[in-house]
Design a protein around this nucleic acid. Sequence first.
DNA 1: CTTGACCTTCCCATGATGGGAAGCCCCATA
DNA 2: TATGGGGCTTCCCATCATGGGAAGGTCAAG
Lengths: 136, 136
Amino acid sequence: MNIGEASTLSGVSAKMIRYYESIGLIEPPARTASQYRVYADDDVHTLRFVRRSRDLGFSLEETRELLALWHDKSRASADVKKLAMAHVRDLEAKAAELSAMADTLRHLATHCHGDHRPDCPILSDFAAGAPTQRKA
Amino acid sequence: MNIGEASTLSGVSAKMIRYYESIGLIEPPARTASQYRVYADDDVHTLRFVRRSRDLGFSLEETRELLALWHDKSRASADVKKLAMAHVRDLEAKAAELSAMADTLRHLATHCHGDHRPDCPILSDFAAGAPTQRKA
DNA sequence: CTTGACCTTCCCATGATGGGAAGCCCCATA
DNA sequence: TATGGGGCTTCCCATCATGGGAAGGTCAAG
């Protein structure tokens, strides 16, 4: 099948499929005489794997490791679980960070009248703040 | 004061100060005869405002709007609150999305033995999945 | 006057993705 | 068979916010 069909079946854009190939995340497929890429069902399988990994927030580098683990029949499940749980902690930390920002802002907004008057504690706070601690 | 001091006082890197100037987010400061940028206390104030905005997850474009609102003495506080609350919803949506990813992955990991054996439902799931619904 | 810290501009890199141009290829239909 | 349209190819550029670093000028203290 051509790249278009592989894209449709896997849910990965043709653009990204070529990109993944260029960075060595996936194997270069066979080509027709006119240089068209030719994919097999197995390739679609791999592309779906990548997509699922991306959808769960793994970076392409992490996805590369997961693919390696997937192909390595002899690795222990502990290796996979370790990577997954580290990522879970990352995701939760990021989620908490965003929630904290939302809470802070929501709190500031509570004290803003939100009417025709110009006074607004939100901007006053912005203006007043000393340099805050930066996120890691 | 020079850019270094303004950077220290505001918590915005010199690199970013120059960048903010280049995209018109902040006003170009005066220059010495030798082209050194010269900042006043007010400029540090503005830089802190920008930093606070960024720390609360506003994009530079949103920050630009906030700065405009800040300088506009006649705008209603409702305008500010509206922008802030829209951003709160954005932040909360992103946080929820990350949490959902974490939950999914944590659930998968629950079923992974995490020992020396190679079987791992995490990767099996990755490999099996049909194209899932993409995030908006 | 030298030295070292600071400043200037300019270019490049990141991560993941999309947009689009220029040019070939393939198939169906007129 | 010719033509048109859609798919494929590569290549370059843009995004968003930030950092790194080179090459060179400046300033202040010793």
